[in-house]
Lab assay of single mutants.
Amino acid sequence: NITYDSTPEDVKTWLQSKGFNPVTVNSLGVLNGAQLFSLNKDELRTVCPEGARVYSQIT
């Protein structure tokens, strides 16, 4: 699982392990844990089509 202390590499690995598509992995894999957790559902949806699914995994 990812935490606020996760590195971008951790986030990328976590996204891949959850089966998100490469677009999602590449879009969000540049963020660290704190940055990812700071995004709300609408912001995640704006960044990638699977944003709502990512949001449900981190809340």
Results as ranks from 00 to 15, higher is better:
residue 1 N to L: 04
residue 1 N to E: 15
residue 1 N to R: 05
residue 2 I to L: 12
residue 2 I to P: 06
residue 2 I to R: 00
residue 2 I to V: 03
residue 2 I to G: 00
residue 3 T to P: 00
residue 3 T to C: 11
residue 3 T to H: 08
residue 3 T to N: 15
residue 4 Y to K: 13
residue 4 Y to H: 04
residue 4 Y to A: 14
residue 4 Y to P: 13
residue 4 Y to W: 12
residue 4 Y to Q: 15
residue 4 Y to E: 11
residue 4 Y to C: 15
residue 5 D to E: 15
residue 5 D to G: 09
residue 5 D to L: 11
residue 5 D to C: 06
residue 5 D to W: 06
residue 5 D to I: 08
residue 5 D to Y: 08
residue 6 S to T: 04
residue 6 S to P: 00
residue 6 S to D: 03
residue 6 S to M: 03
residue 6 S to L: 00
residue 6 S to H: 02
residue 6 S to N: 02
residue 7 T to H: 09
residue 7 T to M: 05
residue 7 T to W: 03
residue 7 T to E: 12
residue 7 T to G: 09
residue 7 T to P: 09
residue 7 T to L: 05
residue 7 T to V: 07
residue 8 P to Y: 03
residue 8 P to F: 01
residue 8 P to E: 07
residue 8 P to K: 09
residue 8 P to H: 06
residue 8 P to C: 10
residue 8 P to D: 05
residue 9 E to A: 13
residue 9 E to H: 15
residue 9 E to Y: 10
residue 9 E to P: 06
residue 9 E to G: 10
residue 9 E to I: 05
residue 9 E to S: 13
residue 9 E to C: 08
residue 10 D to A: 13
residue 10 D to N: 09
residue 10 D to H: 13
residue 10 D to S: 08
residue 10 D to M: 10
residue 10 D to Y: 04
residue 10 D to I: 05
residue 11 V to E: 03
residue 11 V to R: 01
residue 11 V to I: 13
residue 12 K to M: 08
residue 12 K to T: 10
residue 12 K to F: 05
residue 12 K to E: 06
residue 12 K to W: 06
residue 12 K to D: 01
residue 13 T to I: 09
residue 13 T to L: 12
residue 13 T to R: 10
residue 13 T to G: 11
residue 13 T to M: 11
residue 13 T to S: 12
residue 13 T to Y: 07
residue 13 T to E: 08
residue 13 T to D: 09
residue 13 T to P: 02
residue 13 T to F: 05
residue 14 W to I: 03
residue 14 W to D: 05
residue 14 W to T: 04
residue 15 L to E: 03
residue 15 L to S: 02
residue 15 L to T: 02
residue 15 L to I: 02
residue 15 L to W: 00
residue 15 L to H: 00
residue 16 Q to A: 13
residue 16 Q to R: 11
residue 16 Q to C: 12
residue 16 Q to L: 13
residue 16 Q to V: 13
residue 16 Q to P: 01
residue 16 Q to G: 08
residue 17 S to V: 13
residue 17 S to F: 12
residue 17 S to Y: 13
residue 17 S to E: 15
residue 17 S to H: 15
residue 17 S to P: 00
residue 18 K to Y: 09
residue 18 K to T: 09
residue 18 K to C: 12
residue 18 K to P: 03
residue 18 K to N: 13
residue 18 K to E: 12
residue 18 K to I: 07
residue 18 K to F: 13
residue 18 K to S: 13
residue 19 G to E: 07
residue 19 G to D: 04
residue 19 G to C: 06
residue 19 G to W: 02
residue 19 G to H: 11
residue 20 F to C: 04
residue 20 F to W: 02
residue 20 F to I: 02
residue 20 F to S: 04
residue 21 N to R: 08
residue 21 N to S: 12
residue 21 N to D: 09
residue 21 N to A: 10
residue 21 N to P: 04
residue 21 N to L: 10
residue 22 P to E: 15
residue 22 P to M: 11
residue 22 P to L: 11
residue 23 V to T: 14
residue 23 V to K: 12
residue 23 V to R: 10
residue 23 V to W: 08
residue 23 V to Y: 07
residue 23 V to Q: 09
residue 24 T to E: 03
residue 24 T to R: 01
residue 24 T to S: 05
residue 24 T to G: 02
residue 24 T to I: 05
residue 24 T to Y: 00
residue 24 T to K: 00
residue 25 V to H: 00
residue 25 V to K: 04
residue 26 N to V: 06
residue 26 N to R: 13
residue 26 N to M: 11
residue 26 N to K: 13
residue 26 N to P: 00
residue 26 N to G: 13
residue 27 S to C: 13
residue 27 S to V: 11
residue 27 S to F: 07
residue 27 S to W: 05
residue 27 S to E: 14
residue 28 L to F: 04
residue 28 L to K: 00
residue 28 L to R: 01
residue 28 L to P: 01
residue 29 G to M: 02
residue 29 G to F: 00
residue 29 G to S: 08
residue 29 G to K: 06
residue 29 G to P: 00
residue 29 G to N: 01
residue 29 G to V: 00
residue 30 V to Y: 07
residue 30 V to P: 09
residue 30 V to M: 09
residue 30 V to W: 11
residue 30 V to Q: 06
residue 30 V to R: 13
residue 30 V to D: 09
residue 30 V to I: 10
residue 30 V to K: 15
residue 30 V to G: 14
residue 30 V to L: 13
residue 31 L to W: 04
residue 31 L to A: 03
residue 31 L to S: 02
residue 31 L to H: 05
residue 31 L to T: 03
residue 31 L to F: 15
residue 31 L to K: 06
residue 31 L to N: 04
residue 32 N to T: 10
residue 32 N to L: 00
residue 32 N to H: 08
residue 32 N to K: 06
residue 32 N to C: 07
residue 33 G to S: 02
residue 33 G to C: 00
residue 33 G to L: 00
residue 33 G to H: 02
residue 33 G to Q: 00
residue 34 A to N: 09
residue 34 A to W: 09
residue 34 A to P: 09
residue 35 Q to I: 02
residue 35 Q to N: 06
residue 35 Q to E: 13
residue 35 Q to A: 14
residue 35 Q to G: 07
residue 35 Q to F: 00
residue 35 Q to V: 04
residue 36 L to N: 01
residue 36 L to V: 06
residue 36 L to Y: 00
residue 36 L to D: 04
residue 36 L to A: 02
residue 36 L to I: 07
residue 36 L to R: 02
residue 36 L to E: 03
residue 36 L to T: 02
residue 36 L to M: 13
residue 37 F to N: 04
residue 37 F to L: 15
residue 37 F to M: 15
residue 37 F to E: 04
residue 37 F to C: 10
residue 38 S to R: 13
residue 38 S to A: 14
residue 38 S to L: 06
residue 39 L to R: 09
residue 39 L to C: 08
residue 39 L to P: 01
residue 39 L to I: 05
residue 39 L to G: 03
residue 39 L to S: 08
residue 39 L to E: 04
residue 39 L to F: 11
residue 40 N to D: 04
residue 40 N to S: 07
residue 41 K to F: 14
residue 41 K to V: 10
residue 41 K to R: 12
residue 41 K to N: 07
residue 41 K to L: 13
residue 41 K to C: 08
residue 41 K to A: 14
residue 42 D to C: 08
residue 42 D to Y: 07
residue 42 D to V: 08
residue 42 D to A: 09
residue 42 D to I: 15
residue 42 D to T: 08
residue 42 D to F: 06
residue 43 E to K: 11
residue 43 E to T: 11
residue 43 E to L: 04
residue 43 E to W: 08
residue 43 E to V: 11
residue 43 E to D: 10
residue 43 E to A: 13
residue 43 E to F: 08
residue 44 L to M: 15
residue 44 L to C: 06
residue 44 L to Y: 08
residue 44 L to Q: 01
residue 45 R to F: 10
residue 45 R to S: 14
residue 45 R to T: 14
residue 46 T to V: 13
residue 46 T to W: 06
residue 46 T to R: 15
residue 46 T to Y: 07
residue 46 T to G: 14
residue 46 T to K: 14
residue 46 T to N: 15
residue 46 T to I: 12
residue 46 T to A: 14
residue 46 T to L: 10
residue 48 C to V: 06
residue 48 C to A: 07
residue 48 C to W: 03
residue 48 C to R: 03
residue 48 C to D: 06
residue 48 C to N: 01
residue 48 C to P: 01
residue 49 P to G: 09
residue 49 P to Y: 05
residue 49 P to A: 12
residue 49 P to I: 04
residue 49 P to M: 08
residue 49 P to L: 07
residue 49 P to R: 07
residue 50 E to D: 06
residue 50 E to K: 02
residue 50 E to C: 02
residue 50 E to S: 02
residue 50 E to N: 02
residue 50 E to V: 00
residue 51 G to Q: 04
residue 51 G to M: 05
residue 51 G to R: 02
residue 51 G to C: 01
residue 51 G to D: 05
residue 51 G to Y: 05
residue 52 A to R: 11
residue 52 A to H: 14
residue 52 A to T: 13
residue 52 A to S: 14
residue 52 A to E: 15
residue 53 R to Y: 07
residue 53 R to L: 14
residue 53 R to P: 05
residue 54 V to I: 07
residue 54 V to N: 02
residue 54 V to C: 05
residue 55 Y to A: 09
residue 55 Y to R: 07
residue 55 Y to D: 10
residue 55 Y to Q: 05
residue 55 Y to G: 08
residue 56 S to L: 06
residue 56 S to N: 14
residue 56 S to E: 14
residue 56 S to I: 07
residue 56 S to M: 07
residue 56 S to V: 06
residue 56 S to Q: 15
residue 56 S to W: 08
residue 56 S to A: 11
residue 57 Q to F: 09
residue 57 Q to T: 12
residue 57 Q to M: 15
residue 58 I to S: 05
residue 58 I to H: 01
residue 58 I to A: 07
residue 58 I to W: 01
residue 58 I to P: 04
residue 58 I to T: 05
residue 58 I to M: 12
residue 59 T to A: 14
residue 59 T to D: 12
residue 59 T to I: 12
residue 59 T to G: 02
